[in-house]
C-alpha cells in the first residue's frame, strides 16, 4: 500500500500531550492480537479514543511522540488515523512509521494552532499544516528524497522488493 505524500489530508483532531509512549499506542504485552489492540490503543490517556476514533481522524501530539520501545504504530492506521502530526517524534517511532509508510509529520508549533475536535489540514506538498477555522498554520518538515521514495513504495519491505527485482533483472545477487 503506497502512501501518497502529495495528497492533502483533512480530518478531525484528537489532541495528546508530550512523551506519549509506545506502551500506550501499542499495548501488545497485554493485548497481543490486532483485534484486541484496536480496542485498547491510547486508552491509557483517553479511554474514549478506541471507542470513538473514526476513519480519517488526525492525531496531534506534543514533543517526543512515540517514545519508548521499537513497537510500531500500525494499530493507529488500523483504527483509521489518517495522519499523525507532532511537535517532535521519537527517532524509533519515526523510523517505524517511515518504514511502514504510516503518514507521520513533524510540525513544530502544531499544538498551538489547533484544539481537540477541530479540523486540521496537512498539506505536505505546500509544506504547511493549517487550521481552516482559525486560519493559523505552521510549517511541516520535509523529508529527504530517499525517505519520500520509501513512502511512495509503501514502506521499506516494498522498497527492498523493488531493489531485489531490479538487481535480479541485472543478473546481480549471487548468493541464493
Amino acid at each position: 500500500m503506497g502512501f501518497d505524500l502529495n495528497r492533502v489530508i483533512r480530518g478531525r483532531v484528537w489532541k495528546f500531550g508530550d512523551s506519549i509512549e509506545t506502551d500506550a499506542i501499542n499495548p501488545y504485552y497485554r493485548y497481543p492480537t490486532m483485534e484486541e489492540l484496536k480496542q485498547h490503543t491510547m486508552e491509557a490517556y483517553r479511554p474514549e479514543f478506541p471507542l470513538q476514533v473514526k476513519s480519517g481522524d488526525i492525531m496531534v501530539a506534543g514533543r517526543n511522540f512515540g517514545c519508548g520501545s521499537s513497537r510500531p504504530g500500525l494499530v493507529l492506521r488500523e483504527v483509521g488515523v489518517a495522519a499523525i502530526v507532532a511537535e517532535s517524534v521519537s527517532r524509533l517511532f519515526l523510523r517505524n512509521s517511515i518504514s511502514r509508510a504510516i503518514p507521520i509529520f513533524v510540525a513544530p508549533g502544531v499544538t498551538g494552532i489547533v484544539e481537540d475536535g477541530e479540523t486540521l489540514e496537512v498539506d505536505y506538498p505546500q509544506g504547511v499544516v493549517h487550521n481552516p477555522a482559525s486560519g493559523k498554520s505552521v510549517t511541516v518538515r520535509k523529508f529527504p528524497p530517499m525517505i519520500e521514495q520509501i513512502f511512495e513504495c509503501g514502506g521499506l519491505p516494498e522498497f527492498a522488493r523493488e531493489r531485489y527485482l531490479r538487481e535480479a533483472a541485472l543478473g546481480k545477487r549471487p548468493k541464493a
Binding site: R95, N96, S99, P157, A160, Y164
Partner: peptide
C-alpha cells in the same frame, strides 16, 4: 542502535540501512 522491524527486513536482505 534500535531499528524497526521493517528496517530489520531490509538489513537481513542487504546488510545495509539508511
Amino acid at each position: 542502535t534500535g531499528i524497526s522491524r521493517a528496517d530489520m527486513f531490509y538489513v537481513l536482505l542487504y546488510g545495509e540501512l539508511w
